[in-house]
């Protein structure tokens, strides 16, 4: 038996065998999604039954250190904060019409690998395109944005709308 014959027999057998039993995993994605809400993708601190007093004392010492190391969770629930999860990036910046497309470094990462930046207070109401830049070279759109546009150079920009003060966007 030649090597190429053996290789094609192997491919054929493994593929045929998997196909024959594929119906076993027909609903796998639904099973997993059902199981996941109780789980978290990123490690979170679980204090368990450690005494609250001990935690408070420890926190006094730890908070200062954590603040310096950006270990707090990024404030992504705040609508005036842009966030990107990119745990292994060395740096992430945002470039936008409101920065005149100059990259502005983002804070982070926090302990979950989230980078974030607060929009400037003096930003005027309007529509702004923006993109994240990972490690100074990779343009990444915001997966949380509700609108995207294709650029002339085949990139994807995210879009955000700033409403006048007191109005909902």
């Amino acid at each position: 038996m030649h090597e190429h014959e053996l290789e094609s027999l192997l491919k054929e057998t493994l593929t045929r065998y998997a196909e024959a039993h594929r119906d076993r995993i027909a609903d796998l994605e639904y099973e997993i999604v059902e199981e996941l809400p109780s789980r978290q993708p990123t490690p979170r601190l679980r204090w368990g039954f450690v005494g609250a007093g001990a935690i408070a004392v420890a926190a006094v010492f730890v908070i200062g250190l954590w603040a310096g190391l950006n270990l707090f969770a990024a404030p992504c629930h705040d609508p005036s904060v842009l966030c990107l999860v990119y745990p292994n990036a060395k740096s992430v910046s945002v470039a936008s019409q409101f920065t005149l497309w100059e990259p502005v470094p983002m804070n982070g990462p926090d302990r979950s690998g989230v980078w974030w930046i607060r929009l400037p207070d003096n930003i005027k109401p309007g529509r702004y395109e923006y993109s994240f830049i990972v490690d100074g070279e990779r343009w990444v759109h915001d997966p949380r944005a509700s609108e995207f546009v294709h650029t002339f150079d085949d990139k994807i920009n995210s879009v955000l709308y700033i409403a006048p003060r007191g109005e909902q966007p």
């Binding site: 493994l14 593929t15 998997a18 039993h21 594929r22 076993r24 995993i25 796998l28 994605e29 639904y30 997993i32 999604v33 996941l36 809400p37 978290q40 993708p41 990123t42 992504c76 966030c83 990107l84 999860v85 990119y86 745990p87 979950s112 690998g113 997966p143 949380r144």
Partner: peptide
């Protein structure tokens, strides 16, 4: 993947749908 990192389990469900045949095989 980024949505899944943000805790979006439906995004992870789509990843599972895409890779389940290969992983099972």
């Amino acid at each position: 993947i980024q949505r899944a990192l943000h805790g979006d389990v439906d995004a992870w469900g789509e990843i599972v749908r895409r890779y389940k045949d290969a992983v099972f095989g």
